[in-house]
């Protein structure tokens, strides 16, 4: 393991982008960072709000129409190597908004699986996932960052 891999393992900047949905996952991610009980910083993950600084992009929420373009753009701004963690059932399959429709048949407001828009490396299921799971999801993408050239 070279210096590059050690450095990448020891400092991970995570960015949260919230693309519409019910707020639940979003607050659990914030909980994982801000609640001293979970405290993501002790696992060497620091929260940032600047795509230029980030390594890991945490995406929550079913992607609504207006958030598609910002999501793509922000993903493109992150310098390589980067990884994406999709948090919550909405980001993985659209949850009730996409799958439990009444008479309209297809809800075209939701562009939900984040896979369709940007490549996803780790998925954290749950509605809403627990903060422990979110920590686990972020930790799972570290090997990808470490192995990148």
């Amino acid at each position: 393991m070279g210096l590059k891999a050690i450095a990448r393992k020891n400092a991970i900047h995570a960015m949260l982008i919230y693309t519409g949905g019910c707020n639940g996952c979003d607050i659990e991610v914030v909980n994982a960072v801000y609640s001293p009980r979970y405290d993501i910083e002790q696992y060497r993950v620091l929260l940032t709000w600047n795509p230029r600084e980030a390594d890991v992009l945490i995406v929550t929420g079913c992607v609504t129409w207006q958030m598609v373009e910002p999501l793509k753009k922000i993903y493109s701004l992150i310098p390589e190597p980067k990884a994406v963690v999709a948090v919550g059932a909405c980001a993985i399959n659209g949850n009730v908004y996409k799958n439990m429709v009444g008479e309209i048949g297809v809800n075209e407001e939701i562009f939900a699986p984040v896979d369709n828009i940007i490549p996803v490396d780790a998925k954290v299921p749950g509605c809403a996932p627990r903060p422990e799971d979110i920590l686990m999801g972020v930790v799972k993408v570290i090997p990808k960052l470490m192995e990148a050239p």
Partner: peptide, 9 residues
Amino acid sequence: RIGPPILTP
């Protein structure tokens, strides 16, 4: 809280 290791930031 515990906070990041000293060398991390």
